[in-house]
Design a protein around this nucleic acid. Sequence first.
DNA 1: TCGCAAATGTGATATGGCTTACATTTTATG
DNA 2: CATAAAATGTAAGCCATATCACATTTGCGA
Lengths: 222, 222
Amino acid sequence: MSDSIWCFENINLYQVLCPHKLKEFGKDHFEGFKKGDFIYFPEDASQSIFMVSKGKVKIVSYNEDGEEVVKAILGKGEIFGEKALLGEEKRSDYALACSEPTELCPMRLSDMYQLMRTNEKFGFSIYKLIGVRIKKMERRLEALLFKDVRTRLCEFIKEMADESGTMEGTELVVSHFFTQKDFADLIGTSRETVTRLFNELKEEGIIDYSRKEIKILAKEKL
Amino acid sequence: MSDSIWCFENINLYQVLCPHKLKEFGKDHFEGFKKGDFIYFPEDASQSIFMVSKGKVKIVSYNEDGEEVVKAILGKGEIFGEKALLGEEKRSDYALACSEPTELCPMRLSDMYQLMRTNEKFGFSIYKLIGVRIKKMERRLEALLFKDVRTRLCEFIKEMADESGTMEGTELVVSHFFTQKDFADLIGTSRETVTRLFNELKEEGIIDYSRKEIKILAKEKL
DNA sequence: TCGCAAATGTGATATGGCTTACATTTTATG
DNA sequence: CATAAAATGTAAGCCATATCACATTTGCGA
């Protein structure tokens, strides 16, 4: 649990990547996005990776019916588009800003590679970041294979709490900006089931759910 | 589709990694394993990554009941343990040889990093390899989220065919050494369902399944 | 501030695939 | 070659969760 949300599992990437600390690359590093602005589209050339320096970014795709499917939501200090580093030539999904204003810190691939080669510490940070991503995916896969929906939701809430929860008195509070549909996408279930489960957890006095935040009243029961 | 099984999605890693081509690192690079030999255990320090130079390797874990759950099966030219490169300190699963003899080409982490830094081509191969792994995982995740078991099995068979199928007359033949339990683990279903589906596909004249190989009679219907 | 679209709530019904339980076949092993 | 162990085959019943069909609430944009 951390109060500095950009501290990403012991790798302070914000510190490493932030333009202020890397003046030589820092010229055109900030960009302002409005809510709903697309940052990239599938088939766009994967030329850079991004760090969120302000706001929130959604990674999504669209299913056959044109409905949005959320794959990830990222906040300050988090990185996306990093598959570009791994030989991906074209983006495979959409990235869009979902809060206003959203500011990003894009880094060109060539700069990244150079930095990774010359700055050992930086290189390791990037490796580690990708490793963490893979671990996260593996956990998700395992949950999907072996755990029921309620367990998946509980674990998801706990993860959110670990990443961005704050203690307010005796309550652990996680502020968020997910819709229940987003939760559903992220844990792999239907919107209706999520609604039902949130109310169930509420009834049982385990959480207190509202649109903006989740208060965790009994973490041990999650 | 390729007849050289170690050609891994356009990256000929065998060529790059094979000890014969890297004499300076090649002293102790071959090791013989018998069927069932463990290569590493969870909690072992992640000190090296391996390439299969002969035989087959299973990556597994065990569930609460002590049953084996297969996570991946790798053949010649494929790499495993690569999370070591990404900041993983301890192995998180078991790797064991599942054919005899199995030979590996282990590379120490420090050597890898050095090679990656000095040999640009090598570095890119590794990045790309990890990228391919991630893509594969993403596909798996998506299949699990959006597709029913039959579709998942069909796609899995098609993938096998693309990776290691050979044309024999008009038939596309994939030889394999999976049990139906293995298929079940890999696509996320129960063994019984796999049995049923294989027989269903057989009845429908789409494939011809036997323990050693799958003949694909109507790829378009898969 | 009104109106409308998006988000949430809830019941009824349907169903894919898991589980259980056991039979049969194939393969490994002394 | 005999016997055990592993893999495969099959059926019946059940259950978690999807799907459908609405009602209600919330919040945003004009």
